[in-house]
């Protein structure tokens, strides 16, 4: 097995933090840590352990031939994975104690077998190995899952549970702030063009975990979607003191500017239920309790009492 190209990495390690605030259409690529700042783009990224030994990073790799079978590609990538990268500032995630690793492809699953020295590895070393193999191999389009075996036996966790089929979504790579790249599917209720009814709209949003889902929903409602016929119901610069869900009730604590700022032509009832309906779309939420600066003794938009919870209102949704 030969390594055709020796990469020339640069000194700096680029960590791309894609903190995607707000709601933008479409999915984002999972960009991972790279050991080379790479002006060239490589065919694949091989995962390795960073210099400080605390996380996984990557180095770029090009396959030897353009027309390779899935199996050959997998083998080549795995080989690269096991070798110490020549110039990159990282070490191979294939621990020294291990002696053997092989892979066989069946449909979209890569079956990876490791020798029994795997059991002698520390939990961190095992983690890096598993994550490294899965994240490296699943870059090949045809491979969706990796199934691990140790010495022919299916791999289990410390509780004895089978790990089963692992995809790249089984892992999450956190940056310094524990943010990661994710997508969530949300149904949000915006106002129609006349401001008297709600329109439901579902799409995938990029979500990095910098705020709770509930807060994220409200933030999306405060931004105008680029779709025709949809209008935002909450003002920009909305002051949200706190939001959390407990026992099926979502508590939303607004600052005082929720009552004072105008959202132009939208009815107050529409504003209220855009909040309630959107939040109750979440699995854990059945009711919404609004507070204004921690108090329930006032009126929401000077009209609606908030000493009670609100449930979803289907009547105010526009019938198509």
């Amino acid at each position: 097995m030969k390594l055709r190209r020796i990469m020339q990495p640069l000194m700096c390690v680029c960590i791309c933090v894609m903190a995607m605030l707000g709601c933008s259409n479409g999915a984002s690529d999972n960009e991972n840590n790279t050991a080379n700042s790479g002006e060239k783009s490589f065919d694949y990224n091989i995962y390795c352990i960073s210099e400080d030994g605390n996380e996984l990073t990557t180095w770029g790799y090009n396959v030897s031939k353009s027309q390779l079978s899935v199996s050959d590609k997998a083998v080549e990538l795995l080989e690269a994975f096991c070798k110490e990268p020549a110039n990159a500032k990282c070490t191979s995630a294939f621990a020294e104690k291990l002696r053997h690793i092989d892979v066989s492809i069946d449909r979209d699953v890569a079956y990876v077998n490791i020798d029994k020295n795997y059991n002698k590895l520390g939990s961190l070393e095992r983690l890096f190995l598993r994550a490294g193999v899965v994240l490296t191999l699943t870059q090949i389009d045809e491979i969706e899952y990796v199934y691990f075996k140790v010495n022919g036996q299916p791999l289990a966790d410390s509780e004895g549970n089978m790990l089963g089929y692992l995809s790249k979504n089984s892992f999450v790579m956190y940056d310094e702030s524990m943010l990661s790249d994710n997508q969530i599917s949300l149904t949000l209720y915006y106002a129609n063009d006349t401001g008297d009814k709600l329109v439901g709209y579902r799409q995938d949003y990029a979500y990095d975990g910098s705020m709770s889902r509930e807060a994220f929903i409200l933030e999306c409602l405060a931004k105008s979607p680029s779709v025709e016929g949809l209008n935002r119901t909450l003002p920009e610069g909305l002051e949200l003191r706190n939001i959390y869900t407990n026992d099926g009730i979502c508590y939303v604590n607004f600052g005082s500017n929720i009552n004072s700022s105008t959202v132009s032509f939208i009815d107050d009832e529409v504003i209220l239920y855009s909040i309630v309906n959107s939040l109750t779309e979440l699995d854990g939420v059945t009711k919404v309790q609004i507070l204004i600066e921690g108090s329930v003794d006032t009126l929401f938009r000077n009209e609606f009492p908030i000493d009670q919870t609100y449930k979803v209102n289907l009547d105010i949704i526009e019938k198509r």
Binding site: E55, L56, F128, F171, V172, M173, Y174, S180, G209
Partner: peptide, 10 residues
């Protein structure tokens, strides 16, 4: 967000 996933990070 990430319940059930295996976490890596510094």
């Amino acid at each position: 967000v990430d319940t059930g996933k295996t976490a890596l990070g510094t």
